[in-house]
Amino acid sequence: MRPAFRAPAITALAAAAALSLAGCGAIVSAAPSTSSPAAAPASASASATASAPASSSPAATATPAASGGGGAGAASPGTTPSSAPAPAELKTYTFPNGHVSFKYPADWKVELFTGGGSPSESATATVTDASGTKQATVYAGKIADGVSHPVTRTVFESAPVPGLAGQPAPAAHYAFYVDRMESNATYRMHLVAGAPASGQGAALDGIIRTAEGVILADVQFIEKPFANDAAAKSWLTGAEGQALKALLLSVTYK
C-alpha cells in the first residue's frame, strides 16, 4: 500500500449577462477530485515479522491461481468512506497439499512459490491486486522462524479465524495493530496465535501451528504506511482494508 494523493480537476462554469450595451463576464470555480491510486504494500519491518523464507529454499515454480470473477477497490489512508464498501466477489485458492485455502477478491491474482524437494514441504502464495501490487502472503510449511523484541502495542481489531478453530492452541486470530519501539511505529495486519493485547509486551511472530506444520499469513505494508493511528483505522474501513481483513479471516486448514 502506498500513500494516496489527490489530483484536482478544474471545472469552468461560464455565465454571460448583458444589460443594454454592456460587455460580458465569466465565473470559474474549482472542485477537487476524490480519486486515488491503489495502495501498494511492501514487507513490514523484519524485526516484527515471522520469516517464512527462512525455512524454504529459493522459488522453484510459480503457478497462477484459477477461475473466478468480480473485484475490489482500494481505499485512501486518512479518508473515511461515506458508507461501508460493497462486498467483493471472491475466488478460493487452495494449496497443492489440499490442506490450506483462503478467499480473495476475484480481480486479484495469486502465484505459488514452492521450496526445493519433491514433493515440496513449503510453499508461499503471493497475492497481488488488479494493479500488480503485492498485498499479502500466505505461507504453509513444516517450520518457520520468528524474531521477538520488546514493544508497546495498540490493538485496533482482532477476531478468531473460524477455519483454523480446530488447530492446536492458542487459537489463531486475525489482528490489526501497531507496535511502537522508541520513536518507531510498525503497523501489522496478520494472523497471530491467541488474541493480542494492548500494552507492553513482545513482538508477535505470527506462527500458526497446524496438525502437520505451520501457517503464516501477513498483509504486506510499506515501511511507514500510515501517518498516524487515525489514518490506519480509516484505511481499515475502506475497500482495501476490508478485503485484506476478509482474506485473513478466510484462511482454512482441513
Rank of each mutant, 00 (worst) to 15 (best):
Y104W: 10
P105H: 01
P105V: 02
D107M: 06
D107G: 11
W108D: 12
W108V: 00
E111L: 15
E111M: 11
F113K: 07
F113N: 04
G115P: 11
G117Q: 08
G117R: 10
S118V: 06
S120I: 01
S122D: 15
A123S: 04
A123W: 05
T124N: 12
T126P: 00
T126A: 15
T126Y: 11
T128F: 06
A130S: 15
S131P: 03
G132I: 11
T133M: 11
K134H: 04
Q135S: 04
Q135T: 09
A136R: 01
A136D: 02
A136P: 13
A136L: 09
T137N: 11
V138F: 03
Y139W: 11
Y139V: 03
A140C: 02
A140K: 02
A140V: 14
G141A: 10
K142L: 12
I143H: 02
I143C: 02
G146N: 07
G146C: 00
G146Y: 07
G146T: 12
V147Y: 00
V147I: 10
S148M: 05
H149K: 06
P150A: 08
P150V: 06
T152V: 08
T152M: 10
T152E: 12
R153N: 08
T154E: 09
V155L: 11
V155Q: 12
V155E: 08
F156Y: 01
A159R: 07
P160A: 05
P160Q: 01
A165C: 04
A165N: 02
G166N: 07
Q167R: 06
Q167W: 06
P168R: 01
A171F: 03
A172D: 04
Y174D: 03
Y174K: 00
A175G: 07
A175H: 04
A175S: 06
Y177V: 09
Y177M: 04
R180T: 14
E182W: 03
E182F: 06
S183Q: 13
N184K: 06
N184I: 13
A185P: 00
A185T: 09
T186A: 09
M189T: 09
M189V: 09
H190M: 15
H190K: 15
V192H: 13
V192N: 11
V192T: 15
V192W: 01
A197I: 11
A197V: 14
S198P: 10
G199K: 15
G199M: 02
Q200W: 04
L204Y: 14
D205H: 07
G206K: 12
G206L: 14
I208Q: 01
I208C: 09
R209C: 03
T210R: 05
A211C: 02
A211R: 13
E212H: 13
G213D: 08
L216Y: 10
D218Y: 12
V219D: 01
V219E: 00
Q220A: 08
Q220Y: 12
I222C: 03
P225C: 05
A227R: 15
A227Q: 12
N228E: 01
N228I: 05
N228Q: 10
N228S: 05
D229N: 13
A230N: 09
A231L: 08
A231N: 15
A231K: 13
